[in-house]
């Protein structure tokens, strides 16, 4: 359970310690990629809680979502259409949906646990 959090901390430390930076013009793409990654992560957590988790789907979804989002933003810049807004909208809505579902599942689990305790 704690392994993902350790991973997050390791990733953050790695990012802060290494002097790795990207040019400012590409920071838009990276922010979209972060959004896509977060969306996939929360989708994965939801699937995990609903017992529909499939590793292959998750891993491929993670990378393809990131690439697709960044690619869409790139295409949008070159076409002069703000296509990154589409990515932000889609991922944002899905992110909120997923978080809401996760919250409900956790809440129902918690109340069930409480009920069991009161029965005992």
């Amino acid at each position: 359970m704690w392994l993902p959090f350790v991973g997050l901390v390791i990733g953050l430390l790695l990012g802060f310690w290494t002097e790795f930076r990207i040019p400012e013009i590409y920071s838009n793409y990276l922010s979209i990629a972060v959004l896509a990654a977060l969306d996939t992560l929360f989708g994965g957590i939801r699937a995990h809680l609903q017992n529909t988790f499939e590793e292959k789907v998750f891993v491929t979804g993670f990378f393809s979502n990131i690439l697709l989002a960044a690619g869409l933003a790139f295409l949008g810049v070159h076409l002069g259409v703000d296509l990154y807004l589409a990515a932000i909208f889609a991922f944002g809505v899905r992110l909120f949906n997923n978080i809401a579902v996760i919250r409900r599942i956790l809440l129902s689990k918690w109340t069930a646990k409480q009920d069991r305790q009161t029965e005992n």
Binding site: M1, L3, P4, F5, V6, G7, L8, V9, I10, G11, L12, L13, L14, G15, F16, F20, R21, I22, P23, E24, S27, L30, S31, A33, V34, A37, L38, T40, L41, G44, I45, H48, F53, E55, F58, V59, F62
Partner: peptide
């Protein structure tokens, strides 16, 4: 499954850190 999640969160953490620094 947890290992996959850990790898994914590591990548996300790295990306967030880089974005933050940039």
């Amino acid at each position: 499954r947890m290992l996959i999640f850990a790898i994914v969160t590591t990548i996300i953490g790295f990306m967030i850190a880089v974005q933050f620094k940039t």
